[in-house]
Design a protein around this nucleic acid. Structure first.
Lengths: 161, 161
DNA sequence: CTTAATTGGTATGTATCCTTACTATTAGTG
DNA sequence: CACTAATAGTAAGGATACATACCAATTAAG
């Protein structure tokens, strides 16, 4: 049997497909028009105000070309502000607008909730087991992706207790 | 903390991203120009010769619009033959060409091998544990996706011991 | 300090992915 | 058998996702 149904690649793609579908469904129910990437971007900007696009791309593991388009759409929705950095005219400094911040806070519980739905069919123990295994593999395989996850190191190093 | 790094959606997307990157890398090493979907299509056609596009889409969980383009590219590469069904002029009957069959057999070991690489960082026990959990969730969440996996029931029911 | 190498961002091109809409064809119903 | 419903495929449109190439700006090298 040379079928794909037991292959890691197929199963991962399938769960990702389900994940995206659940995300779309729940956000639509909440009358919010946001994709998973767009939410990830909002979240990362919220956590690191003033981050530039390249660092943001690293922080959520996308290539900068893709992220450019994502930011375009977030900006045209009025959720994100993009300004030229005063210290580096190549860089675009990102921040959430008032609307963006409000929307982000509004959807956090929705997004949190839906994570459970993605893993439906598993009990709580299995869910955390799966999450742990996913974390372990993605950490190990991080550099295998063309857009690896990178730490964001703010230049002005403020203490983080 | 409202970061995404521990959310199922993010981890799954990340592993999928790694999976696709590993696939691309290994197939490129083998001098083969095939995407994961294209391989899945070849595999499913090989297992079900004469299948039509809609059934194939169901068999590998893609929507028919996407699959149409995939088949276009496989056909233009000379790997797949597409003919109008004699019994249903709407349907397109699919089959592997000689080249397609040869290529498929050649890359099977490569694709098998790379599945292990996707889950690097896990030992064998953890790998099969993860695979089991993925299978359980995807089975449970099958109908949540817009393109659910469907059984393919050939009309001329030949015995399958 | 001048040149070379790097980096941030955009543009372009290919391939997914999915939705909705539409045509052609077939199946189902009275 | 006429009419309606369902189905196979394509078309069009939006959003990822990534590679490569390119420009502008900054940094590193000498």
């Amino acid at each position: 049997m040379v079928e794909i149904y037991n292959m890691a690649g197929h199963l991962v793609r399938r769960l990702h497909q389900i994940s995206v579908a659940v995300f779309a469904e729940k956000l639509a129910e909440a009358k919010v028009d946001l994709t998973p990437v767009q939410f990830a971007a909002l979240s990362a900007i919220h956590a690191r105000p003033g981050i530039d696009q390249a660092s943001l791309a690293g922080a959520i593991a996308y290539d900068k070309a893709t992220l450019g388009g994502v930011i375009d759409r977030l900006e045209s929705k009025g959720l994100v502000q993009r300004t030229v950095s005063p210290t580096d005219r190549r860089a675009r400094v990102l921040g959430l607008s008032e609307d963006g911040l409000a929307l982000f806070h509004r959807i956090i519980p929705v997004v949190r909730e839906l994570q459970n739905e993605i893993l439906s069919g598993l009990d709580d123990a299995e869910k955390s087991q799966l999450l742990g295994l996913l974390k372990k593999t993605t950490d190990a395989g991080n550099d295998k992706s063309r857009a690896p996850l990178r730490e964001f190191v703010p230049e002005a190093g403020q203490k983080k207790s």
